[in-house]
Nucleic acid binder design. Structure first.
Lengths: 206, 206
DNA sequence: ACAAAAGTGTTCCTGTTACACCCATGT
DNA sequence: ACATGGGTGTAACAGGAACACTTTTGT
């Protein structure tokens, strides 16, 4: 951390989430989320992206404002929290000092104020799942319906019926069936889908 | 305005809404919303309440954070916007310099950044109407179903069927029927209801 | 042949919509 | 008596939930 990251009246903090088999968030080894102090002339969202980039090298992820929290007495006056979503494949993090942690595990060391951010981000995700196309942010450009269903199940913390899920997804008209399939394991290959172009793939990124 | 209201890196801005026959918001004559600079040791929400109190004398309204916007170059670094809701009877504003304006009227003079706040607050209201008990914030402690329906219709910008609306409200189990009625005009008196105690009457006010 | 995930329809139920008339009051 | 908003039930419809078997592949 340098001065730009610790001094200043306004900070941003970012909870980056991804899904492998469970929902995970990016945690710095000191038990904190990536943060940055707002630089002169810098936009809040740019500051949040910079916080993420500085710790992980990651760019161009889905990023959305979560909530603004009071700062602490000796620190910033306000902390603007964001949550970010990205598919695991895009996150080849081999940096020292960062790792993935389980947001539901109260044993993972994490500063109290950052724990609240992670907590509220999880709630926001579960709430938005039904009416906003956030699930796709966890997947590659092309994906199978099984993968998509897994995302819904993990974020929503419930198992879903396969047939009902597929009908619902088709009805939403957000999916385009490709001509390709993915072979993986000793079973029938799965058809690949992608998001319809007209959908805002990075909604809220402005 | 004094120094505490104009100087400082973090400001709050408040869009206060009420309903008479239309949705209205409180506008300062200069074409701005009430704002305040975050004072040392002050919590963000307290700052927003102070902004409202200083211009109107109003206290104890429903207040919820809306979004945090980038500041302008010569001003604050970040503007934390709130929206507030209150019934018209609680707002006996006879202060100079403030008045009620129509949020949908693009002719009312209002600073661009504040116009966006009002706009987004309206959208948030309409969205939350269905799943959060915000409509009651526009009403007195006791109210008729006709009044409640009017609030839903005004915020949701649509007319509703009376019978379906009443059934829905009863099904929500948020209402308690009182033994009193309200007489008003030359027609049958209307039964008065109140919110069930267990409901958070000022949800999000913490 | 078998294990493992992909893929596919129908029935039931619940909640939402549409709709028209009588009631109690003040003037 | 009449004008005004308050108050009530039912039938049609649509969307969500429950449910089991066949298909294709790799080993």
């Amino acid at each position: 951390m340098n001065d730009t990251n610790t001094i200043g009246p306004v900070h941003t903090a970012v909870a980056l989430f991804t899904i492998r088999e469970r929902l995970e968030f990016l945690r710095l080894d000191e038990g904190r989320l990536p943060t940055a102090a707002l630089a002169p002339q810098e936009a809040l969202e740019a500051c949040a992206r910079r916080a993420l980039w500085a710790t992980t090298g990651i760019e161009d992820v889905f990023l959305e404002q979560l909530y603004t929290f009071d700062g602490r007495q000796d620190g910033p006056r306000a902390i603007v929290a964001y949550y970010a979503l990205a598919p695991r494949e895009r996150l080849p993090i081999r940096r020292p000092g960062v790792s993935w942690a389980d947001p539901t595990d109260s044993a993972t060391s994490l500063a109290d104020d950052h724990r609240i951010i992670v907590q509220r981000a999880c709630e926001r995700l579960a709430g938005k799942l039904e009416y906003a196309p956030i699930a796709y942010q966890f997947l590659a450009e092309r994906f199978t319906l099984g993968e998509l269903q897994a995302v819904y199940e993990i974020i929503g913390c419930q198992t879903l019926d396969k047939r009902n899920f597929r009908r619902r997804m088709r009805a939403s008209a957000r999916l385009v069936e490709t001509r390709d399939v993915r072979r993986k394991g000793c079973h029938r290959p799965a058809r690949l889908y992608r998001l319809r172009d007209t959908q805002p793939a990075i909604a809220g990124a402005l």
